[in-house]
Computed example of a mutant assay.
Amino acid sequence: MDIRFLESFVSVATHGSVAEAARRLNLTPAAVAQRLRALENELGHSLVSRVGRTMRPTASGLAVLGQTERLFAAMRDLRAAAADDLPAGQLSLGATATALTGLMPNILARLSTRFPHVEAFIRPGASVDLYHSLLAGELDAAVLVRPHFAMPKSIAWHTLRHEPLVLIAPAAVELYDPHEALERLPFIRYDRNQWGGQLIDRYLRQHRLKVREWLELDALDAIVTLVERGLGLSIVPDWAPPWPEGLHLRKIALPDVQARQSGVLWNRSGPRIAAIDAFVQCCTTTLLDPPDAPETSSNG
């Protein structure tokens, strides 16, 4: 069985269209359709059927889909084993929303330059979800917020950034006492289901602050935008830039505050350990020695 034919089937089943699968695989629709027919002929069953304008997997197709992740993981392991301990193969990586914009671009740029035979598949998500996916073996490594509990010895952690909590307010608001302002003005809370949100909740309780909470969100970009529009104050981790552009905010350091730690978490062993170690190396060295910024030009 040609693994490329299976990948084409998965793309059609996932995206519901031969045309969309072809676009994502950089193939012609005719080539994808041919691969799909060849796979169906080899297996002796129809794998997809048309429902209106959408292609959906049949019962046989759903059964095959249930096995594909295991097959693809086995192929990644074979490529890594064939590399003879050299960094190679495909890594399944996780990253939080702020890490995707603030940390991962430079890390991935260094990874592609120094280890061109390592491929990366990135899954965005919340830290708690990425953590459990890594423990389940679904991810090789993840850039996320450090959990507030002891981690098993099968995984390793390296802190990349200390991100203190800061009070953010609209630029026009005068703040003389951050704690007084937090109790006086409407408060937009970072979701307590997130580890960063739990850190903020502990800060408020430790300082016995009774905030006028009216909204709770798990999206930091949305929180700072709402604050800039004058809808309240918030406490957020001072995450790695870029922050949303064009915002006029006051950012005030809070007293006696614990910093959120963002870093890389990875599995200590496995068939892709050489590639994992290469990724971790790029994470740690990029923060110490960031790549040069690309040249920009302006028309005056």
Results as ranks from 00 to 15, higher is better:
272 R>K: 11
253 A>S: 14
297 S>T: 04
273 I>D: 09
131 Y>R: 09
192 R>S: 14
221 D>C: 08
141 A>W: 09
170 P>A: 09
120 A>E: 09
210 K>P: 03
285 T>D: 15
169 A>F: 10
178 P>N: 09
299 N>Q: 13
179 H>E: 10
170 P>L: 06
62 L>P: 00
204 L>K: 07
241 P>E: 05
156 A>L: 09
162 H>S: 14
195 W>R: 15
272 R>I: 06
221 D>P: 07
194 Q>W: 00
118 V>C: 14
134 L>R: 11
294 P>M: 00
7 E>K: 01
265 L>M: 13
81 A>E: 11
15 H>D: 11
105 P>V: 03
122 I>T: 01
252 I>S: 09
66 G>N: 00
172 A>L: 14
14 T>H: 11
236 V>F: 10
193 N>D: 14
39 L>C: 08
232 G>K: 05
219 A>R: 14
76 R>K: 06
103 L>C: 06
120 A>P: 06
13 A>D: 07
86 L>R: 15
152 P>D: 13
252 I>H: 02
203 Y>L: 04
12 V>E: 04
211 V>K: 02
273 I>G: 02
232 G>V: 07
279 F>G: 03
174 E>R: 15
75 M>I: 01
260 R>C: 04
257 V>Q: 11
181 A>G: 00
197 G>K: 08
34 Q>S: 15
243 W>P: 00
106 N>E: 12
181 A>I: 01
286 T>Q: 10
160 L>V: 00
241 P>N: 06
288 L>K: 13
54 T>Y: 10
221 D>Y: 06
25 L>S: 02
287 L>D: 02
262 S>R: 13
92 S>L: 12
203 Y>F: 11
14 T>N: 12
248 H>Y: 03
118 V>D: 05
222 A>V: 15
265 L>N: 04
275 A>F: 06
97 A>D: 07
258 Q>K: 09
85 D>T: 02
79 R>W: 03
205 R>Q: 09
262 S>P: 05
